[in-house]
């Protein structure tokens, strides 16, 4: 079990939130999508097999039209 999980914080162009969420829903490794208010517009949780796989998934995310900026935080430890 060497799976890698990460939170990716996303900022989107105004008016594009819905399209971006629809596109994110099509990526299988994204286990949770939250539309948010505050300094970020969308927060997703990605679960990948390893770091290489995570890179590929994030690459897919970056291709989505309407995403302005992403910041990924790989999870080191999680409780509970």
């Amino acid at each position: 079990m060497d799976k890698v999980a990460a939170y990716t914080l996303i900022n989107v162009k105004i008016g594009k939130t819905k399209d971006v969420i629809e596109a994110l829903k099509n990526i299988e490794e994204i286990k949770n999508i939250a539309a948010t208010t505050g300094i970020y517009d969308i927060i997703i949780r990605v679960e990948a097999e390893d770091h290489k796989h995570l890179f590929e998934v994030l690459n897919k995310v970056h291709q989505i039209d309407g995403i302005e900026r992403t910041t990924t935080h790989v999870i080191e430890v999680e409780v509970p």
Binding site: L9, I21, K25, I30, K31, N32, I33, A34, A35, T36, T37, G38, I39, Y40, I43
Partner: peptide, 12 residues
């Protein structure tokens, strides 16, 4: 501390 409220959430 930064607070980001969730408006709507989807989970697999």
């Amino acid at each position: 501390i930064f607070i980001v409220s969730i408006l709507k959430e989807w989970e697999k």
